[in-house]
Design a protein around this nucleic acid. Structure first.
Length: 551
DNA sequence: TCCACTCTGCCAGGACCGAC
DNA sequence: GTCGGTCCTGGCAGAGTGGA
């Protein structure tokens, strides 16, 4: 088994793994003739050849590729086609643990993804010996020596061909160029020590992967950049964009470029980006600059950014500001007591949405659009507006700044004096702010708890029943809903197969499926439809503003 | 179980501010 | 000056809710 110590030692050498097809691993050979001398005779079975490559060597190779920043995944032994979904590895390469899980158990083939965000690899797959030699010559004339992957002859077509693996500044589009398959973004190639379906193992030379300064370096191939997804700009703050774009004034507000990059990571994390997305953004934009310097060596750049990212996360986790702490206290309070009165269920859902917005942006006063509140609470935006008005009247919210046609209302969470003692008693602890509350918000906005479904009062009954067997009287006391309402909801839930009653107690049925129940009530997809409608509304609004009038 | 009242969803129409 | 943005009010129909 590979130890972490071994792993770090391997990381010191940036050359690609070198594999021979013989157990005599010390035997030096040229890329084109060495292994061919050992090529098995046609018709022989090749399984014994693989048996000389131990499971540890397969795992070692996989970890080595991982260390090089390549995105890999497993294929069935002696197969080239993926039998499982591998698209996620294009976006988020497998971590060290996952790589070990994939290659630690049985013989597998290794696939390396081209155009993946860390590597920007391109493979020039030459089908014939002639094309292979021509390409090798042209690369040599251009002063490019790089990692080459070949396989033993097995009597099939393409014997004598091979792949040249290169790094490019940007992902390259896949295409066919004569007898060369240019495997770029979205494709993958077989890596040593994989086994070809027709027999024979893949092996490689002992060269590092060459990095092209630009796509014109291989002018005769006319490489084109791949179309990549644009980042979701609307979710990033203006400050984050200024930092990403290397705005000197914004960066100058920090004591160092490192601090600016930590702040940028923190902002991206708050916007819901994961590390791989952040890495892609840092590579796509100039940023404060220090990462760019480190990224001259991609492995070093990745390590540096990972440390910066961890520092940003640490900051978020350890330095909660007053607004965040208050929001968590208020959220715990809102979830922990019964809200009484008509409309209280919606008020509670909208109030929790306000708290979540404060937690998300880490500050208050906070801007909250009615459509956003509606989507988060699972109600119509007009309902969210009316609920917000009631919350203001109740002293739970304060309207700081009225909306403009382009900016939403600005609110502040407030603590009514008569409630202050109770709310402060809901001291925030990690158990209050974790999974339980996330799932609560997720439940409230579920399609089944929409209007014409079980509604928000149904959501409260459902939440109260989580892990408990309760009577109608107890449920009414816990939720603040009238016992008639509680009974109605329970009977509907029984019809939907969500709950059952044993004597006076009611409990959730094992395996209850909220989505299926939403389908039966006709509310399935309501949240998605609402989001789509809001997108249309905003588009229409923009046109109206452009015209200056409605018609 | 029934009824009165409240709330919701939907629609139409109208209005402006801050950043660059 | 241009651009990019959301909220509010009022009315209507019908569902949801609380209480008798």
């Amino acid at each position: 088994m590979l130890t972490r110590q071994n792993k770090s030692r391997q990381g010191a050498n940036l050359t690609a793994p070198h594999f021979t097809t013989s157990h005599k691993t010390s035997q030096a050979h040229d890329t084109t003739d060495g292994p061919q001398r050992q090529a098995p005779q046609p018709g022989l079975q090749f399984a014994p050849a693989f048996s000389r490559i131990t499971q540890d060597r397969l795992l070692q190779a996989a970890v080595r590729y991982h260390e090089l920043g390549l995105s890999i995944f497993s294929l069935p032994y002696r197969q080239k086609s993926a039998k499982k979904r591998w698209g996620t590895y294009k976006i988020a390469p497998a971590g060290y643990g996952e790589v070990c899980m994939m290659f630690d158990r049985k013989p597998q083939n290794i696939a390396i993804i081209c155009g993946a965000i860390e590597s920007n690899l391109v493979a020039l797959d030459c089908d014939t010996p002639k094309t292979f030699i021509e390409t090798k010559t042209q690369l040599g004339e251009a002063g490019i020596q790089t990692w080459i992957v070949k396989r033993n002859k097995n009597g099939t077509t393409h014997d004598g061909g091979g792949s040249f693996i290169l790094r490019t500044p940007t992902p390259v589009a896949s295409k066919k160029h004569g007898d060369i398959d240019i495997i770029g973004a979205g494709g993958y190639f077989m890596a040593p020590p994989s086994a070809h379906p027709g027999g024979g193992l893949y092996y490689s030379n002992n060269e590092p992967i060459a990095r092209l300064p630009d796509l014109d370096a291989l002018g005769w191939l006319n490489l084109k950049p791949a179309q990549t997804d644009r980042p979701k700009q609307q979710k990033l703050s203006g400050k984050a964009w200024r930092l990403l774009n290397g705005d000197a004034k914004t960066i100058g507000a920090y004591q160092s470029r490192s601090e600016a990059e930590i702040a940028l990571c923190e902002s991206l994390a708050r916007a819901g980006r994961n590390f791989n997305e952040v890495l892609r953004l840092f590579r796509a934009y100039p940023g404060p600059g220090k990462f760019r310097e480190k990224d001259m060596d991609p492995l070093e750049g990745r390590r540096y950014l990972y440390m910066t990212w961890c520092n940003g996360l640490d900051w978020i986790n350890t330095t909660e500001n007053k607004a965040t702490i208050l929001a968590k206290q208020l959220k715990s309070w809102a979830l922990g007591h019964a809200w009484r009165g008509r409309g209280a269920s919606s008020d509670r859902a909208v109030y929790l949405a306000h708290c979540n917005i404060v937690l998300r942006c880490g500050k208050q006063p906070h801007g909250a659009g009615l459509r956003e509140l509606g989507e988060m609470a699972g109600v119509h935006w007009a309902t969210a507006g009316r609920a917000t008005t009631r919350l203001i009247k109740a002293g739970l919210l304060e309207l700081i700044t009225e909306s403009t046609p382009s900016l939403p209302n600005i609110y502040a969470l407030t603590v009514p004096s008569e409630q202050e003692e109770k709310i402060r008693a809901y001291c925030y602890t990690p158990s209050h702010g974790g999974v339980m509350e996330c799932s609560s918000m997720h439940t409230i906005s579920h399609d089944i708890f929409r209007w014409a479904g079980l509604n928000k009062s149904g959501a409260e009954v459902w939440q109260a029943l989580q892990g408990s067997e309760l009577t109608i009287r107890e449920l009414a006391a816990m939720t603040g809903r009238h016992r008639t309402t509680v009974k109605r909801k329970l009977l509907t839930m029984v019809d939907l197969g969500l709950v059952e009653n044993v004597g006076d107690d009611w409990c959730i049925v094992d395996g209850a499926d909220l989505s299926a129940a939403a389908g039966r009530l006709g509310t399935k997809g309501a949240g998605q439809a609402q989001r789509i409608k809001h997108i249309r509304d905003r588009r229409l609004h923009r046109r109206v503003l452009d015209r200056g009038r409605y018609y």
